[in-house]
Amino acid sequence: MVAEPQVTPLAIETRALTKRFGRRTAVDGVDLAVPTGTVFGFLGPNGSGKTTTIRMLLGLASPTSGTAKVLGGDMPAMSQEVLPEVGAVVEGPAFYPWLSGRDNLVRMDSLAGSAPGRRSRRQRVDEALDRVGLAPAANRRYRRYSLGMKQRLALAGALVRPARLLVLDEPTNGLDPQGMREVRALVADIAAEGTTVFLSTHLLAEVELVCSHAAVMSAGRVVAQGALSDLRSRGRRVAQLGTPDPGSAAAVLGQLPGCGEVVATGPDEVRFELGRLEPEAAVAALVRADVAVRSFVPQATSLEEAFVALTGEGFEVS
């Protein structure tokens, strides 16, 4: 798992990763590049292939074709070397209902022979429980946990051992707004310690709040990925123009290359798509044509607009 000598080593790298179930292609030629040290949002509507991708990253499923490298090691071939340094929450919490939260974590940790220092187990488990705010309920049976507590326990399970990569699949499902905030703060903390976090979610707001990078899945394919700032700029860019002469403004703008549709939004206001056009070029053209410009406001697109443009569909907000 020695990282390759590159400028930014990748924590996760997939090439043409594909998974077919019978005739259905769940994951279709996915190329992911997750830089080390980032909080990487893996965004997509339910059923877009996120969890299947994660299962392949963790060696639970084998790709039909393509490759997946995690921390520099091929998956699933190098699972045993790679996974000790990966903490994971996959498709929700899963524990033995008849054991307490603490006993569940102790049991899970004791299953892996390679655990770092058995003696530290109790302490590591207690620290993890404390970190997710479950210490007061540690001795209660898992059966009696609320959904939010179960979700926290799953997170604690991923934190019992120090990890270089954390894979979190929908970690805020079932949490109330307060719980969501706490989990986001926790993710930020973990990232600050240098751990790469790969966070899958169908909630756009979550990506905006905690992620520095993101990939967008749609129908089994990655339709966009990169730094959040880059992704934002890839959406539709729109400008609002205040002018007493909307007619001539529309005529001038219509002739500019790369400029999109012009729509009147008021008696002396138009809104238009900048397309590939720079805002200053649009203003210069208007002024040269003697169109009076009262105001000109290029509008920063939200991620939501960008992603809707990329995926051609909305995201559930739940």
């Binding site: 299962r55 963790l58 060696g59 639970l60 996959v90 498709e91 899963a94 524990f95 299953l111």
Partner: peptide, 13 residues
Amino acid sequence: VGTLRYILTRPVR
């Protein structure tokens, strides 16, 4: 119960 996926990603051969 779902614990199989967590056991295997611990990892356990």
